[in-house]
Design a protein around this nucleic acid. Structure first.
Lengths: 340, 340
DNA sequence: TTGAAAGCGCTAACAA
DNA sequence: TTGTTAGCGCTTTCAA
């Protein structure tokens, strides 16, 4: 039933040349000259036969897979986070430009899951993009030390790690709230602090408070887990405790959306009763009710950048700049009550 | 810099056996008996060396890649649609259970892009899951006829195509609106009609109207393109034209969310002025303002089902049931104005 | 119960 | 400019 694919042997036969000639011509190996006639005959034969080189055979001999891996921590995130698909999108886009495929791997147990190591060890991929890495992942550090082509979107502590991140704007987001007169600002983190970028945002929150001379109260902090549900829960618990809160800095937009729903449910108004600021500017942020003030991070650009650096690296040009940081922007909409 | 991975040869040497013995023992080839001593020596040697079989070599000789492809039409959708990540999630989950990897491919030109054919032809994948296929994609039909392992999530017309879909509930959704007394129901499709599932929902809308004796007006129909933006635009244009509308059936939730924002922007109330029903029950639907009445489709189950069928097929058990349909459910929240 | 050897389809060093 | 040939690392048939 399944069609037998033609081999380079058959192309060679049809063109009346040897297999190496076929290989040289089809791969346009530099420094190899062939008569225009031969070239055409080979190209034509390949065309007619519908010849596509066998990836496995090519990989076996060349040692290159032309495949990249994208690692997402915690498979749960994959299905609910709006940031990930955007990164994946641009990663795929760049990869195809360079003739690479993308394998997506989602870990289900952050500590033990060595799925991505398997990919590396079985030589299924040439390089790895790790999305929002956890700092407590030692295997990642090991890979970095080994010199395996690996680009992080986000950061870990390892000084040799190559990463693409964005300028943290969490402090500005909180400052914005402070400038609007808020004194009681709660914070809902979007993930456990082992995720450095969640950690970054949380400590920026504390820093902003401190700089403004505002007290930091652990009671005003909650930890979500990527989902709108967790944002809703966190906000509900904040509200339930009857704490004096006039504003919330959410760790990401999905969390913010869940929190907003909890506020609405209480019959409270946004931003009059509770002002909210999110982070990421996911596509739905501007359609929130009211439109969500947030920090625009560049997921597409991060994906592009990471892919480009990784492919360069795989192809032998190890990135000279280890840490790329992309610009970030505060997007002021109505959920924080600024007049604009 | 990069570590040289051990080969089966080295494992064999260390264990003092031949390479074939190593292969037999590590792969637990049925019908092969070895002394417990040999077995242990081989296992230990492999363990100590950190031996992981080279995927390419294995593929070359076995003809199997242990890799599945997921095809998404129009890479644009990938970054904005909330349905896709869920399918991807469960696809990855099932795949890993069976030791498969997943390559994600997003087409950027629906007509010409043969990226997934390349995957097939280069023998990079054993099977293919195609998400929300377009009926006008002839290459898909060709693949189906060829007998290549291929499972659709959604449907095409080809009678031999294996597909996983859900029971269409669009008619019930519209009926729900009709039952609530709405006579002027607009419809915003979430994609061009070449996408059969969008088409299904649109024609169900017409059917429901007809059955209820309500007139169908082309003027009340708009075509979005997956994004909340397009839903917003569509709703805005509907509102701009001053048409008499009391309810909207949106082709999916993302569209609905965009449409809702447009309604709010006009100062109109949901559901009092405009009732809205969506489709998909994405995670954010229940956090919409007001919470969105929608149709719950089972993305996770569809992904699981498709993956399971495909892997079975790849492993030789061609699915006996060509068309699997999963149950669907109307989720009544507040956006339609039902009392509950 | 174990080993020898063929060969999967390709690339690339070496010959001619 | 073109062809011959030796592997890449593995699985698997066949023989011992």
């Amino acid at each position: 039933m399944k069609l037998k694919r033609p081999t380079s042997h058959q192309v060679a036969e049809r063109a009346g040349v040897s297999r190496s000639t076929v290989s040289f011509i089809l791969n346009e190996v530099p420094g190899m000259k062939f008569s225009e006639d031969t070239r055409l005959r080979v190209l034509e034969a390949a065309q007619e036969l519908g010849y596509v080189p066998d990836a496995a055979a090519r990989t076996l001999v060349s040692g290159r897979t032309q495949t990249l891996g994208l690692i997402v921590y915690d498979d749960f995130h994959l299905k609910i986070d709006a940031f990930i698909p955007q990164v994946l999108h641009s990663l795929i886009e760049v990869s195809r430009e360079y003739g690479f495929s993308v394998i997506v791997e989602a870990l289900n147990d952050v500590q033990d899951d060595d799925a991505y190591l398997k990919l590396v060890q079985a030589k299924q991929i040439d390089g790895l993009v790790v999305l929002n890495p956890r700092s407590d992942d030692d295997r990642l550090n090991a890979l970095v030390e080994e010199g395996f082509p690996l680009v992080l979107i986000g950061k870990i502590q390892h000084p040799e790690a190559v990463s693409v991140s964005h300028r943290s704007f969490a402090e500005q987001a909180v400052n914005h709230l402070i400038r609007l007169g808020h004194q009681h600002i709660a914070h809902i983190s979007y993930a456990p602090l082992a995720y450095l970028s969640a950690n970054d945002r949380s400590s920026a929150y504390q820093r902003a408070l401190k700089k403004a001379g505002l007290p930091f109260a652990e009671a005003l902090v909650r930890y979500g887990n990527y989902s709108a549900d967790s944002g809703y829960e966190a906000m509900t618990s904040l509200l339930d405790e009857g704490l004096e809160i006039t504003a919330v800095f959410a760790g990401n937009d999905t969390i913010a959306l869940g929190a907003m729903a909890a506020v609405h449910e209480r019959g409270l108004r946004i931003p009059q009763d509770i002002a909210i600021v999110g982070y990421d500017d996911i596509p739905l942020a501007r359609f929130a009710v009211p439109p969500l003030t947030t920090v625009r991070t560049p997921p597409l650009e991060q994906g592009r950048q990471a892919a480009t650096m990784l492919i360069d690296w795989v192809q032998g040009k190890k990135p000279e700049q280890k840490q790329v940081r992309l610009p970030t922007e505060l997007i002021i909409r109505q959920s924080c009550g600024a007049k604009r």
